[in-house]
Nucleic acid binder design. Structure first.
Length: 583
RNA sequence: GGGCCCGUGGCCUAGCCAGGAUUAAGGCACCGGCCUUCGGAGCCGGAGGUCCCGGGUUCAAAUCCCGGCGGGCCCGCCA
């Protein structure tokens, strides 16, 4: 209690827009000189404009953000959509905060998944998509069909064996699994019936398709000519993905192909480094790194942000057939990202399910002598996006694509815009994609998202457009008003009701932004902008702005409106929502 | 089995890390109002809560600690 009184005394002595400070029990009550504070806030917004609220915490840093990086085997689904939207937010907030930022997409064309697609593609005689179907959608179906058929054939083989051996329990289980896959396949077949028949026909004549896929993968990694179609089909899928990102308003600076990385010799170099490392081992007969020694050091664990209870198995570097594994290549790729951009920090936006390999990656970097890179590699995690009832699966063709969500939302927005003073063009898309991004940004990344398309398309739940609408409303008032007469603003009229609250919120914006920038939590900014929009709309309804008779008060109201517009505009553009003067 | 994450009115989401002055906040859905005035994609009012459960720490717990329960994810020569 005495401490509070003492503090009050001290604070009173300093001049921080404070009228008075009183202690009340354990609390300190601050009384702000509202006219002075308001003047400071509003003129700051006026002078700094779009720079108002710019945090300085990343000033001068060089940062690489890797995001999306979906495998080139199917279209972007809404899980990748969450990744894309979050990654883009990170790019924007870092850039706004003064960092040099580079956006990279890692095309994993060397892995097993692309080999499956390439295999099906070759078996079908390298078909082109039918007219009107995007390549990523078409080849996504081929990919799902190929993996599903191969799995069915494999299970059937086992079923035959188990039947003759009389293992009834296993027979039932296998039959059930096969039925499930058959129904997945039937669903795919509705879209590409001819291809499915051709694939079934071709694959059922192959003795062991799985090992052929593996062989194709090995050849591709080795740069064998026979495997060229793999790159070809992956490129077509990537082109489709690029289009989807474009319609989301998301661009990349660099597209890195994993196969190029291998051809550059960087992966070989990593393998040589690994063999010389103290942590090198043979695990089950193949080269690996083991981290037991490193994990015993609590200080290092902390530096590398290895979750406390996490058990880290050895990292296998090379398969028995000589091909490398994803994380092995990712070691080389991480070094490439650091070097090519001379980066202080590399942020990987990757789903939480990859926590373990990302931790292994940091440990491996450290083990190979790249301590700085290991410590400066951030895994920005986000939780999964599931569909009501099920989870998505690329291998089975069970997913909701970003394209179809955007398309449906755009149509919906167009309906709503009918009869309004809507200008044509891509405005409906801009509103729709902002609504989509808003959904992805408003929930904490640490929460699982259940994506319900019906809810996404519910007109009344389009909260992204609410911000756009409020911005357009403020803009409209200002356009009608002409210039804000800053010299005549009456700052003494700032202390009541909603004006006071609005100025308070506007003044809070810089501290909100620096918290958001340091923690990279988009949801905090989303909620703040909602507060601003709510306060502005309530105020707008209560107090006429343009019709205000008192010149000084009118100028004040316009200054507040202009500041709200600036804050909303800056906040929305950092989130990646389209800022529209009219909607 | 082990590890990590999540659990807040019917549904969704803030607040939790840095415990107090928020009477637990906002949106959807629900009920009732507001278009002769600056953009009704809006505003005002109402109803609706065991902050998953149980202990503990504290003057004070949605918030911290321990133990449960429910859901998601991981524990591959997949990524």
């Amino acid at each position: 209690m005495e401490l509070a009184a003492k503090l009050a005394e001290d604070l009173r002595a300093k001049d921080l827009f404070l009228k008075d400070v009183k202690s009340a029990g354990v609390y300190l009550n601050f009384f702000v000189k509202y006219p002075d504070y308001s003047k400071k806030v509003l003129t700051s917004v006026k002078e700094l404009g779009e720079g108002y609220g710019r945090p300085v915490i990343w000033e001068g840093k060089r940062i690489v953000v890797e995001y999306v990086s979906a495998n080139p085997v199917h279209p972007l689904h809404i899980g990748s959509g969450r990744n894309a939207v979050l990654g883009d937010f990170i790019y924007r907030i870092l850039k706004f905060s003064g960092a040099e930022v580079q956006r990279r997409y890692y095309v994993d064309d060397v892995g097993l998944q692309v080999a499956y697609l390439g295999y099906g593609y070759i078996k079908l005689g390298k078909p082109n998509p039918p007219a009107g179907m995007k390549p990523d959608h078409y080849y996504g179906l081929i990919y799902a069909a190929t993996t599903t058929i191969i799995d069915i054939l494999k299970l059937k083989k086992e079923l035959d064996v188990k039947k003759s051996s009389g293992n009834n329990e296993r027979v039932l289980e296998l039959s059930r699994q096969i039925d499930e896959l058959m129904s997945d396949l039937a669903r795919i077949k509705e879209k590409i019936p001819e291809e499915i028949d051709a694939l079934l026909n071709a694959l059922s004549r192959v003795e062991d398709p799985e090992s052929e896929v593996n062989e194709l993968m090995r050849k591709y990694e080795a740069g064998d000519k026979d495997s060229e179609p793999v790159r070809e089909v992956a490129s077509k899928v990537v082109e489709g993905i690029r289009k989807t990102l474009e319609s989301l308003g998301i661009e990349m600076d660099v597209w890195d192909w994993e196969s190029d990385l291998i051809r550059s010799g960087m992966v070989d170099k990593v393998l040589r480094e690994a063999r010389e490392s103290l942590h090198f081992t043979e695990h089950k007969g193949v080269p690996a790194l083991q981290f037991e020694g490193l994990l015993k050091d609590p200080a290092l664990r902390k530096k590398l942000r290895i979750p406390e209870g996490l058990d880290i198995p050895p990292l296998i570097l090379v398969r028995k057939n000589g091909s490398t594994l994803y994380t092995t290549r990712d070691i080389a790729y991480t070094l490439k990202k650091f070097r090519e951009f001379d980066a202080d920090l590399v942020i990987n936006v990757i789903a939480v399910e990859q926590t373990l390999p990302q931790a292994q990656l940091r440990l491996a970097l450290h083990a190979l002598g790249h301590a700085r890179e290991a410590e400066s590699l951030i895994h920005y995690k986000y939780e999964m996006v599931n569909l009501p009832g099920t989870s998505m699966s690329g291998r089975r063709g069970r997913y909701v694509t970003v394209d179809e969500v955007l398309e449906k939302m755009t149509t919906l927005v167009q309906e709503l815009m009918k009869g309004k003073k809507s200008e044509a063009g891509d405005k409906a898309l801009k509103i729709a994609r902002s609504a989509f991004k808003y959904m992805m940004l408003s929930a904490s990344p640490s929460k699982t998202l259940v994506f319900d398309l019906r809810k996404a398309l519910d007109t009344n739940q389009l909260s992204g457009p609410y911000l756009q609408y409020t911005y357009a409303r403020a803009n409209s008032v200002l356009e009608k008003a002409g210039e804000v007469e800053w010299d005549t603003v009456d700052f003494s009229a700032t202390s009541q009701g909603l004006r006071r609250r609005l100025i308070w919120l506007i003044g809070k914006f810089p501290s909100v932004m620096s918290k958001v920038a340091s923690e990279l939590h988009p949801e905090d900014l989303v909620h703040f902008l909602n507060e601003v929009a709510d306060a502005f709309n309530a105020w707008y309804d209560k107090e006429p702005i343009l019709k205000e008779g008192d010149r000084g008060v009118r100028a004040l109201k316009l200054a507040i409106t202009a500041s709200v517009k600036t804050v909303l505009g800056t906040g929305m553009s950092v989130l990646g929502l389209d800022v529209l003067r009219r909607i």
